[in-house]
């Protein structure tokens, strides 16, 4: 059954018990993203801090999401992978995740970079679900860009692609 390739147990676990859910303060920037084909949406906040060396680090990601299991689980996995990392590291992870889910299944994911994120490799075989997997990640990318550029809360809502 192909279903189990997409809905790996890790994904279903994150869906049932999402990590880091809820909107929290303080935060540096917020992004609202919507998937125009299905109406799913996420509001995601990013809080950054500087570490001892003065490098920007992701202190917290909090979110309120309305969506399918894939989008909810992908956002949950995002928080696991990215909170505590430097912004630069998080962007490397984001690029790897994006590349994997957009690959139509042609890329073997690197578990060292993506951790639980590799569970979404199966989603890459279903083009209609790629946007679901990326919804929270695109919100993270947008919120972080805002936090870095100092335009904290203007909603973009321009879709997840």
């Amino acid at each position: 059954m192909q279903l189990n390739q997409m809905y790996q147990e890790i994904i279903l676990d994150h869906y049932r018990n999402p990590h880091g859910a809820g909107l929290r303060e303080p935060f540096d920037a917020e992004s609202f993203q919507v998937n125009p084909t299905c109406g799913d949406e996420v509001t995601l906040r990013v809080a950054l801090k500087r570490d001892d060396a003065g490098v920007q680090v992701v202190a917290d990601i909090s979110y309120d999401a309305l969506g399918c299991s894939i989008s909810q689980a992908a956002t949950s996995v995002l928080t696991d992978l990215v909170v505590g990392r430097t912004v630069d590291e998080s962007m490397t992870i984001l690029d790897a995740f994006k590349e994997m889910v957009q690959s139509r299944g042609t890329i073997e994911p690197d578990e060292d970079v993506l951790g639980d994120g590799i569970a979404f490799a199966g989603v890459a075989r279903y083009p209609a679900r790629v946007k679901c997997a990326l919804l929270g990640w695109m919100a993270y990318q947008d919120a972080t860009a805002r936090a870095m550029s100092g335009s904290p809360s203007e909603a973009s809502g321009n879709g997840a692609s």
């Binding site: 059954m1 192909q2 279903l3 997409m6 809905y7 299905c38 799913d40 969506g67 399918c68 299991s69 894939i70 279903y126 679900r129 679901c132």
Partner: peptide
């Protein structure tokens, strides 16, 4: 169960 997930099971 979200509509997308129902649709995926049906598609399968």
């Amino acid at each position: 169960v979200h509509a997308h997930d129902v649709g995926q099971v049906l598609d399968d």
